[in-house]
Nucleic acid binder design. Structure first.
Lengths: 239, 239
DNA sequence: TGAATTTTTATTGTATACAATATGTATTTT
DNA sequence: AAAATACATATTGTATACAATAAAAATTCA
């Protein structure tokens, strides 16, 4: 019966980490979470163990759980690893995707479009996350999936700023991403690995550009009195 | 104090899985393990959760933990993924390895040599596992490491037959592997990524040939009465 | 006999109480 | 007043008892 309760617990905490509702590095209070979810500490702690092993949390002995930190030292490795893993996953997905999975993917893309249209930040982040997660499932590679999932945790968290942005250029980029999703679905459905890899590469480049601005904000104008030409509202407090 | 106890529990169970002392698919009895390790079910279950999340076990709700199965359906994906991940890890290791880590790697290689000389199957398997694990640490890529670890679980388990073999050819191959380790250490120490990748590729090919015989044993002689030319004692009961 | 149902047993899941550890506060000492 | 120590509080870790679920055995009914 209460397998549902534990799953809810896992999913909810996971979402809070991914949407930055729980800030990187922040501590989790077992007692408070127990009250909130109406469970005792035993099952809660088992879930925390799982979340930690999956990379969402970090557990230190006798000092409890904290949300996984996103430090700059791993960024390099993120940018090195992501394109390779994403490309491999897309290739395998295009080779192995079943019709049922393609249907799932299309459904998730509809959710994403709706969230984009309504400008619902959390829904955008989560449906985009789920979209790429489904592609991961399509790849059917238990050995590649763990790395994809680790990448996605930080990718989704970094994307928050992107989704939250009320900037014109960013909105256009979100639309581009949405269009790339459609193309990717088509390539996967038609079993065209090469095309899928290429679109994935473009999709990654779009993200990468965004992240570069995020990590390294636009330089200040030379003349501090002249108005800033392209007013970008990037807040990089999270990193 | 008892953080040690839990770590021992984790390490011991992990080793039993890796050395096939616990057969793939076999069930774990919580009560028996509790008695053996002198802990109650609460901490034991937390460890089982961790082991499951790391790919050593599979936990089904209301039905307990079993050792991760090694079915043929994932073999394809294993052979597809392994060379790419191993190569990437080696490249990064050669780029980033610190002197301290290189020293560790050399120490582990000494252990491996000793185990090979003494023909200690478990020690061979575990020190070889640890050897490649250290290279994984050298790579310093939290995003690539999870896939490497998943691959290593099954790689080490499959290697058991290899190490157990009393066959002449197999022994020569183990010596080759040992020599490749030395070359790999040198490439890493001298920060030569290209060389490290190349040796890794050769090292993988050696494994792959072994696995092919393992999964698909030598064909029977055409004339069933003539003696078998190369008596290979490959027992592929585990797969 | 044999299929279906109930009862029993074993195993897994959860709550709670208690122990161990870490952290914060007060007190003592110089 | 500053440092050091002792004490108090909060948090984490573990054991145990009990509840829920699954599996096995026994019983019933056709």
């Amino acid at each position: 019966m209460q397998a549902t309760k534990k799953q809810t617990l896992y999913d909810t905490l996971r979402q809070r980490v991914l949407t930055l509702e729980l800030a990187p590095g922040s501590a989790l209070d077992e007692t408070i979470l127990c009250e909130e979810f109406g469970v005792s500490r035993t099952p809660l702690r088992e879930i925390l163990q799982r979340l930690a092993a999956h990379g969402y949390l970090e557990i230190t002995a006798n000092r409890g759980a904290t949300v996984s930190s996103m430090n700059l030292s791993v960024m390099r490795s993120f940018f090195q690893t992501a394109p390779m893993i994403y490309a491999s996953i897309s290739r395998l997905a295009a080779e192995n995707a079943t019709p049922v999975q393609t249907t799932q993917l299309k459904a998730e893309q509809r959710q994403f479009r709706i969230a984009v249209k309504r400008n619902e930040v959390i829904d955008m982040a989560m449906s985009n996350h789920r979209f790429h997660e489904i592609i991961g499932e399509m790849a059917a590679s238990p050995y590649l999936l763990p790395s994809l999932q680790r990448l996605q945790i930080d990718h989704t968290r970094m994307s928050q700023t992107f989704y939250k942005s009320r900037n014109r250029t960013d909105h256009e980029r979100i639309d581009s991403a949405c269009e790339q999703h459609e193309q990717l679905i088509e390539a996967i459905e038609k079993h065209q690995p090469a095309t899928a890899v290429d679109i994935t590469r473009q999709h990654w480049e779009l993200s990468r550009h965004q992240f570069e601005r995020y990590v390294q904000p636009d330089p200040l104008p030379i003349d501090p009195l002249s108005p800033i030409q392209a007013p970008t509202q990037v807040d990089n407090h999270a990193l």
